[in-house]
């Protein structure tokens, strides 16, 4: 088993993909079966999760591709990944996270 470092980074991205997709699908299902208002905490959780996850995926992809991509494709691919991640990671999560914590503190337990 060569290139275990690369396989580890691939696994990290795959794990983050499954986690974020599961949360996104769950929240959309909740919105569809009731309404946006009653799913508001789920929406905040999903927004915060996706923003944090995207940063981690970008970092893992950069680490991975800098070792496995060939020199002449590396810059092109890394630029594309950087641009796509930047377009989608504009969310400022400081306010969102404060609201999440306030909801949890009020419930005094895990809620969603």
């Amino acid at each position: 088993m060569n290139e275990q470092e690369a396989l580890m980074r691939l696994a990290d991205i795959a794990i983050d993909l499954y986690a974020m997709e599961s949360a996104v699908l769950r929240t959309i299902k909740a919105i569809e079966s009731s309404n946006i208002k009653s799913a508001s905490l789920k929406i905040k959780l999903t927004e915060a999760l996706v923003t944090d996850t995207l940063l981690r995926v970008e970092m893992n992809a950069r680490k991975l591709l800098s070792s496995v991509a060939s020199e002449h494709t590396k810059t092109y691919i890394l630029n594309n990944i950087f641009n796509r991640c930047s377009e989608l990671s504009v969310e400022d999560t400081v306010g969102t996270k404060r609201e999440i914590a306030e909801a949890v503190n009020q419930a005094e337990d895990y809620i969603s």
């Binding site: 290139e3 691939l10 991205i13 993909l17 996706v50 995207l54 496995v68 796509r84």
Partner: peptide
């Protein structure tokens, strides 16, 4: 959650490209 759905697709695409290069 339009942004979040697109992010899922983006991560999947990054994964596919990365596994191919690996």
């Amino acid at each position: 959650l339009s942004r979040e759905q697109q992010a899922v697709t983006l991560v999947r695409n990054i994964f596919l490209l990365s596994i191919d290069l690996t």
